[in-house]
Write a protein that binds this DNA or RNA. Structure first.
Lengths: 238, 238
DNA sequence: AAATATTTGTCCGTATGTATC
DNA sequence: TGATACATACGGACAAATATT
């Protein structure tokens, strides 16, 4: 029988977690396929329903599977979203300020590293979309400067994020896009401080330069604009 | 009482998961600190032990906390290891071949992007360590070429990984190192195919060039060697 | 439309293993 | 050696959601 072995004290639910992973892989289950029912798996693995559920929920929180009443347990298609969501929770908990710089640096390296490829993949349509986002940014900045106060600068920051996401949206590398998404989600969770008017104007200028380069289909100019975007005088964001 | 609200059908264990995250953050709990006991939290949140445990295990699998019998539930220090471990499990399950290229590309961008910084941080001691690792690689390659067959080239691959890990080991950016660790763990899980003798020799040469540049403290040469290392004629690994 | 079977969601009670004092 | 406090693990019961007939 499928007795999980009593290896020196590895927690049962972790063994079950591994067993289920192996089951999925070895039976070549694809997204949309069903796992056996909880009861069946309990019997097959010789564990209680409590333990099985702990393993199931651990797989669900990272987005590998999804369980629904009356339906069963379904394999999800691969995505990094849930992982990054958990990662952000964990960073939030850790309260480690230093992480902010680490993330910023990593973001710079990744965006610059994929800039050339991104440039090649952008269509005229994408560029129009970027133009429209840039206008959103301008508008949000104006509003924010006029009502010169603690008003939550979310719409500017969100447009900023969409600007970057759109630039890299056509790259045929799922990881890149999901990591850039992660950076944005990270910002939304941690960057509460209100940028100054001066900072807003500088940021706007940086993004305009990027857009202009795209308009003129000038790759060299685009790369320079991206470099410029990430050249903080000191601790300038986005 | 702390009744978790019945917002439209968010699963209870997920609410509890969030509640615990918030509890840790708002009480400013640090690594090593204890969470209240299961029973206490059950009462405070008004949920059953089953639900609470599902949330606890979900937090444990991602490395946020650790629970031990007779002791309690303890906050862990922040680390990305568990996340990447889960991510690899998920990639393994997904069986998506395309991911392999995505990871490879990402690795290239990150390592090259941090090469300059890595060069500046390496001490003579580190360089000696790299030399010793390079010798391990040579030795492993010889063994592998002589016994020209399916023998698992793990020791070569492991030395290869250590080579890269050591280069970036002194960078003051936790994320970089843990992502490079992730790449290596990924390789170990997925790259089963045996490299050819020719490939081994090329790989060795690439790493020798990197080491020579370090020996001579020649940054430009180092950067070129890193570039060369990542210039596949096609689909050449590491 | 309505009844029924299936499956997960949630709770409870009890016993066991482990660490601390 | 106990006594205590804690997580680990089991099994049963009922509720809620969904699918099927």
């Amino acid at each position: 029988m499928g007795e999980t072995q009593k290896t020196p004290h590895k927690k049962l639910y972790l063994q079950v977690y591994d067993d289920i992973c192996k089951y999925i892989a070895s039976n070549n289950l694809k997204p949309g396929d069903h796992l056996p029912t909880e009861m069946e798996m309990c019997q097959k693995l010789g564990v209680s329903r409590t333990i099985l559920r702990e393993a199931i929920k651990s797989l669900e929180i990272t987005g590998v599977i999804r369980s629904r009443p009356g339906i069963g347990i379904i394999i999800q298609s691969f995505s990094t979203d849930r992982f990054f969501s958990c990662l952000i929770d964990s960073m939030y908990i850790s309260g480690d300020d230093h992480l902010e710089d680490d993330v910023e640096q990593m973001r710079k390296v990744i965006e610059l590293g994929f800039s050339a490829q991104a440039f090649d993949t952008l269509s005229q349509e994408d560029i129009s979309k970027i133009e429209s986002i840039l206008n959103d940014m301008k508008h949000a900045a104006e509003v924010q400067i006029r009502s010169k106060s603690k008003i939550f600068g979310l719409s500017f920051a969100e447009a900023d994020a969409r600007f970057h996401q759109t630039i890299f949206s056509k790259i045929p590398n799922k990881l890149v896009l999901s990591i850039i998404n992660f950076f944005w989600a990270y910002d939304r969770k941690f960057k509460i401080k209100q940028p100054s008017s001066r900072h807003l104007r500088i940021t706007l200028d940086k993004h305009e330069k990027i857009y202009n380069a795209l308009m003129e289909h000038d790759k060299k100019m685009f790369m320079e604009a991206m470099e410029y975007h990430y050249s903080y005088d000191y601790k300038e964001k986005s």
